[in-house]
Design a protein around this nucleic acid. Structure first.
Lengths: 201, 201
DNA sequence: TGACGATGTTACCGACCGGTAACATTACGT
DNA sequence: ACGTAATGTTACCGGTCGGTAACATCGTCA
């Protein structure tokens, strides 16, 4: 008897196939690492055929590009969501961002900053994915500097850099330190301290 | 004519072969990532035969174990070198560590914290390499807490956690931010600020 | 109905991966 | 001088990688 009956041939149009593939890539690339995940795993997760991937995306590298863009969009969504809570108080907006970041990074499913992970995965600084990461971080530093200025910091650039270091630290620590150390619990207070110190005349 | 003459068969004893293999692994695993480097690349770099590797190390995983131990020793060497400069001034010792860290992380050949990189490379928290990393970080936090206590901080655990976040941030930022942003230049001053603020009565 | 374009399926390619067996060669103790 | 143990060399294993060709099947529209 045939216990391994073939699943019915399901047919999806190109657009939904591309969407499912991107969803699968976002999940797997983030959770396992883009270099650790093969295209076969992506199509399996997406429930589509391998040829459907290569008819929608020219290569795995292009899929990686689309993944990075999605992560970028998602990241700025997080930032905006935090900042919008305090549209007229830049210092409060900064504090809000760190509180929300500590919340996110404490989630057990959190796997660190996707851009930090990319930087680790690809050794060459000139790799297109690394360049994408550097752009994202540059924009983040610019946003932090702008907020520090609006908050009235004496040295906005210095405050922004200090906060940027803290942010990267939260990303990395979420993966390196065991959860029991509760390192992230110190994140909001430390950020508050830096912000407050930057305001003193 | 034979333009591709075989290199002479050089023969090295087991101990020096093992040492050369470990040196090669340390270089390559750190620079390219342990998962991105194959055993063939290691033996090529070491200038030994592949069988010499598998006669000295039971598997690539054991080579990874030895690599981690080497990196751990090297790391605590860095720490001790900084702290020994101020044996009777814990606050100064902490500041010294951050100054030295900023120096190291600013080197163009720097490829971030080897333990952070391991945490990115291996998704499962239970993987032996991840456990090793968590142990290293736990010991670092303990050392920081001890120093914060000796320095007279009001809340040593809080200061230690803040400094630990900054350290992880420096590691990650060295790879994610473009060198032009000079984010690391803000590291010593930010650490000094946290240390000073923790002393206020 | 029939034809055409889009999709699914299978099989395959060359390259690399970690790891090993079999054998050639060398160094060294007796 | 000879035998033995350690080392070097070659070839290979099964598995996975990114990517593709060939063909079967489907939906759609004339």
């Amino acid at each position: 008897m045939n216990t391994t009956a073939k699943p019915p041939r399901t047919i999806v149009d190109a657009d939904t196939a591309a969407a499912r593939i991107l969803d699968a890539a976002e999940t797997l690339f983030y959770r396992e690492g883009s270099r650790n995940v093969g295209v076969d795993a992506v199509v399996r997760e997406a429930g589509v055929n391998k040829m459907s991937l290569y008819r929608q995306f020219s290569s795995k590298d292009e899929l990686l590009r689309r993944y990075l863009q999605r992560r970028d969009d998602r990241f700025w969504g997080y930032v905006d969501a935090s900042l919008e809570l305090h549209p007229h108080d830049a210092a409060a907006a900064l504090r809000q961002f760190f509180a929300d970041l500590a919340e996110r990074a404490g989630n057990p499913a959190y796997r660190g900053c996707p851009f930090v992970n990319i930087a680790v995965e690809y050794p060459e600084r000139e790799h297109f994915a690394r360049v994408f990461v550097a752009d994202n971080k540059r924009q983040l530093l610019q946003k932090l500097t702008e907020l520090a200025t609006r908050a009235g910091a004496r040295d906005p650039a210095a405050l922004a850099k200090g906060l940027a270091l803290l942010i990267e630290g939260a990303y990395a620590a979420s993966q390196t330190y065991a959860p029991e150390t509760e390192l992230l619990s110190a994140l909001p207070a430390t950020a508050d301290l830096l912000i407050a110190a930057a305001m003193l005349s």
